[in-house]
């Protein structure tokens, strides 16, 4: 039964549809998607249609309450808050995605190699990973952010990735180590599978869901760090992120002045984002882990 044959293709299509139907039954997955998809829409689709004008300072009168023209009103710098939110969400998402992707990619590569190869390679990579883990992330991040004159969004994302990969590497390595000794890997060897076959067909499918979950965690972590940096004024000031909106809102005392329409939306977006990612994780676990399926 060759892979490319009609039978192979059909069985793969059937497998995918089986997984989709499992996905439909997971309430956590659906809840997660209900949160994430609208946010993605807000963050990536809307910026294509909403004009950037609202981002400039003094574009509009300051401190306006929500109205038909300005759905979320304007802030103390004369900017339209809704526009700020859309573009801020976009920037925050980009940071999360870049930091998450790069961090995971690096972590997976290093962790997988260490776990699968074993021996000296493993010892070397593991020591390196552990060294990086020991470095105090937060203080270093603060120092670097304060020191770098031009901290752009991509640069910050890469910086955050540099601190998140060791965690992923460790997790990856231990997963690979345990999978390597599993009966079905040994059996595959006995059935004539070579190294590549084992890596991609036996180990990878069992690791893929884990990678996706680590990605969710990594992305959340990156966005939290970004917000934290913004709140102490060290974030990238060139581009507008959700954290920066909150910073300015607090700077201008939005809470004291009861300007809930300024400070609440970015916070709600962030919470929704984190919650959505967590629910997606739980949902994916249900889909891929047959033991906890309902």
């Amino acid at each position: 039964m060759k892979e490319g044959s009609p039978q192979g293709f059909l069985s793969r299509a059937l497998k995918i549809s089986a997984r989709l139907s499992m996905a439909r039954k997971s309430r956590a997955l659906i809840a997660g998607l209900c949160l994430i998809l609208p946010l993605l829409f807000l963050g990536f689709i809307l910026p294509l249609v909403v004009p950037r004008r609202g981002l400039s300072m003094a574009a509009y009168p300051r401190d306006l309450s929500p109205s038909f023209e300005h759905i979320l009103g304007t802030d103390s710098l004369g900017r339209d808050i809704f526009t700020l939110l859309i573009y801020g969400l976009q920037q925050s998402l980009i940071i999360g995605l870049i930091a998450g992707t790069v961090g995971i990619a690096l972590g997976v590569l290093i962790g997988f190699t260490a776990g699968y190869k074993g021996g000296f390679t493993d010892d070397l990579l593991r020591s390196t990973t552990d060294t990086f883990l020991v470095i105090p992330t937060w203080p270093l991040l603060v120092i670097l952010s304060g020191y770098l004159k031009a901290l752009t969004v991509p640069l910050l994302a890469l910086l955050l990735a540099a601190f998140s990969w060791p965690g992923a590497a460790r997790g990856m390595r231990s997963q690979v180590l345990s999978l390597k000794e599993r009966g079905f890997v040994r059996l595959a060897k006995l059935s004539g599978e070579g190294d590549l076959g084992i890596i991609f067909k036996e180990i990878a499918p069992n690791i893929f869901p884990y990678i996706v979950m680590m990605f969710g965690g990594s992305m959340t972590g990156a966005m939290v760090s970004e917000v934290a940096l913004e709140l102490i004024g060290l974030g990238p000031s060139e581009s507008n992120t959700l954290g920066l909106i909150i910073y300015w809102a607090m700077f201008y005392g939005a809470t004291v002045r009861r300007m809930w329409w300024w400070i609440a939306p970015p916070i709600i977006c962030l919470v929704a984002l984190f919650l959505g990612l967590q629910l997606l994780n739980i949902g994916l676990d249900e889909v891929y882990n047959p033991r906890i399926r309902r």
Binding site: M1, G183, F184, L187, A188, S191, G192, E193, P205, N206
Partner: peptide, 20 residues
């Protein structure tokens, strides 16, 4: 343990046929 939970059990029979 000897079955990869990701695949149907047929695979365990198909692999040797394919590889050998």
């Amino acid at each position: 343990e000897v079955y990869n939970p990701f695949y149907k059990v047929d695979r365990v029979l198909e692999l040797p046929i394919k590889n050998f």
